[in-house]
Amino acid sequence: MSHKQTVLIVDDSQAIRDLIPARLKGLGVHILAADSGAAGLEMVRLHEPDLVLLDVNMPGMSGFEVCQALKNDPQTHDIPIIFLTGSDELLDKVKGFDLGAVDYVTKPFDPVELCARVRAALRTKALMDMLTNQAQLDGLTGLHNRRYFDERLEQELDAGRRYNRSVGLLMLDVDHFKKINDEFGHPRGDEVLRRLANILVTFCRSSDVACRYGGEEFAILLAESGSEHTFQCGRRLLQAIRDSRDLHSVIGRPVTVSIGAASVQPGEGRMLPSVLVDSADRALYAAKNKRDCIIADTGMTSITSAAG
């Protein structure tokens, strides 16, 4: 694991909030603390820590209530929780596991035991993160895969409906890809896809989602992007691909792509994944007739960019 993991302590006792960081110093983790259940809940949502050390017995919102809230929220569901409990409260320990905690530490705690339990929980979390990450990535290009794209598309459209925001989509297909494979062999074809993926990664904002949609087809999901913005993004991307020596050097001549652009906005048609994908696909199909160009599917009208 390359990044520093974060541990959040939620305990109403200042003495405990002081003690734990001193005891975990050797682990090289980043430590946050909250002094109540409600504050802890807020910090989890804000910082998405890798582990929560959660006191059971707190005035106001108890540790159990915090745990339940975290486990009921898909955003925080997978964050492991270790309960801090009194050594003589057997029922609390059992209840903690029932609520989804991974472990417990009894107070007052032995520092060696505390470190060991925290380390074990963090190790598991890092492996889970890695697996989740790999399950969402395309093996060849390192971009997100189709499965992840489908999930995110739905989330973005949900958010779009809720916050009244448009969502844009670019679909991109490599021109004459079969010919490249036939002429230069598959390893060279794969290299074309990898270098194209690099261009997409550089091009995307952090809120955009670039993925390999399948074969030589790519998709870029643009959050908060109306038809005009989506089209302009696609144009810039097309130009970046035309200008990439890195890409063209793979086969010693230009590699070109066709791009279809589409967007949906609240109040204008249905904000459904199939509507947006079909629309971008339609535009891509039209672009494929011409190649090395971008076409936007804006309801009835299509805008074609001047090629070159």
Partner: peptide, 9 residues
């Protein structure tokens, strides 16, 4: 309860 949990530590 608070003192119990802290003092040993």
């Amino acid at each position: 309860h608070q003192l119990k949990g802290a003092a040993g530590g």
